[in-house]
Each structure stands twice: as C-alpha cells, then as structure tokens.
Amino acid sequence: MSSAVAKAPPVETPFLRLARDFARSRTALAGLAVLVLIVLAALLARWVVPQDPYDLAQLDILDGMMAPGSLGGSGWTYWLGTDDQGRDMLSAIVFGLRTSLLVGVVATLIALAVGVAVGLLAAYAGDRVDGLVMRLVDIQLSFPAILIALILLALLGKGVDKVIVALAAVQWAYYARTIRGSALVERRKEYIEAAQCLALPHRRIMMRHLLPNCLPPLIVVATVQVAHAIALEATLSFLGVGVPVTQPSLGMLIASGYQYMLSGDYWVSLFPGLALLVTIVAINLVGDRLRDVLNPRLNH
C-alpha cells in the first residue's frame, strides 16, 4: 500500500490484483453476482416488474390476498401472491428494494463523509480535540444503534429523509473511530512528516496524503454498514417510526403482512423478508471478502 504515496500510481495494476484476489472466493463472487442483480432490479424497477404497485389504477382489489402462483383477474400469474389491495408482491418487493437500498446507501455515504471529516480532523489535530471527539464517539458507541435511531426518529418524525438522517447519525461514529485509528498510524510515518516539512497546506496533507492511505479499512466498514443500515431501516419501519406508507421499504412490507400472518397468510411477510435476507447476506459476503483481500497482513 505504500506505493500509493506516488502521485499517480498505475491504477489498473493494484485494482486488477484486488479483483483477482477477490475472485478467488467463489462464495464472494456469487454474493457479488446476486448483489449486482438486486441493484439492477431496483434501479430498473419500472421495467422489470409486471405492475407499478403504487399506481392505484393498476391494482384490482378483487385480486386481494391471493396465494402465490394464483392466476389474477387481468390474466397474469402472481408468483409471490398479492396483498390486501391486490398488489403483486413481486412488484412490491422490487420497489421496496429501491427504497431500502436508497436509504441504506445514502445514509452510509453521509455518515462516511461526516465520520471521515471528524475522524481525520481529530487524528490530525491531536491532543484536546482528539480527546473530546473520541470521548463523544465512545459514549455514542456504548449505546445500541437502534436506541439512538428510535429516539432521533421520535424527535424528528417519519419520512425517508428523516430515516436517512437518523441512520447517518447512528453510523458516523464507526467511521470516525476507524479512520482515526488508521490515520494515527499513518500520521507517524515519514511521508507525512516529509509533507509537513514541505509546508504543504494542512487540507492538502489530509486529503491527498492521509486519506488515500486510510481508505482500505474504511471501504470494508462501509460495505458492511450498508447491510446494517438496511436491516436497521427495516426494523425501524417495522416498528412504525421509519419510512411513510406512501414509499414502503421491505421492512414496511413485512410489517404490513404481520396481521395476515396470524391467520396463516404467510406470503405477504415471508417473501419481502427473504428478499431482505438475501440482500444482507450478499452484501456481507462481499464485505467479508473485501476485508480479507484488503487486509495487508493477509496479502503477503
């Protein structure tokens, strides 16, 4: 990794090597393939599913609560059944994935930006700033994420944007701690001292010298955190404090099936849950493999 000091390292070579290392695990490759499929389906939702589940004109209330595989009034088969509104579950799941992925990814990116800024600053400033920030991080991390998110949403109210804010607020501390750890190690290395001796501006040292060398562990944490964020969003929506009914995520779909489940109509909850599970497992598989590949101790 020390070759990254050079301003423009040959970009392909390390990337290709990473890709080759990554591909050595078949499970990770399978996870990646599934993940790509899921993301594509979510992005192209409108074109891949038979109906727009939130266009009321397309719903037929007579098709409500049909079991998986039933033939609908309009002639097509509901492979995963329908909900009480006659909504095709497959379509609802793909649209739900959209919301889940959107919330998870955006929240993680915001948290990443905030966490990196705070963590780098703390490590670079050192002493008192560092002590204060890290004490804050420790206190936050000593409380479960779900509790903090719940309280924040209790204050903020419902909404996709609010869920994103709450999830970002829950996550930033992980990144701050992770990047501070690696930045402290990097900071003592000679290339940073050299940059300081050249009297380069602090911002430049942080952004161009420190940050690139602290990235690998961060990428791993971020990947896995997307899965956490998606799971947490689903939980919050299930509890009724997450996304609004007009823009349901997978968690919301599962929650809406709760009442029917007790009477044995399992499919409204089961399939969104499976979709959620597959998404989370796929992300975790990719994240685990990234960690192994990027870990310099295991590389050689």
Binding site: A227, A231, A234, T235, F238, L239, G251, I254, Y258, M261, L262, Y266, S269, L270, G273, L276, L277, I280, V281, N284
Partner: peptide, 13 residues
C-alpha cells in the same frame, strides 16, 4: 444477517 423482527414473525408462523 437475519433481521430480528422478521425471524420473530417467522417463529410465530
């Protein structure tokens, strides 16, 4: 990986 609330529902089921 399994979300707690979903597992709970499946257990009930």
């Amino acid at each position: 990986s399994l979300p707690t609330f979903w597992v709970g529902m499946m257990l009930i089921m």
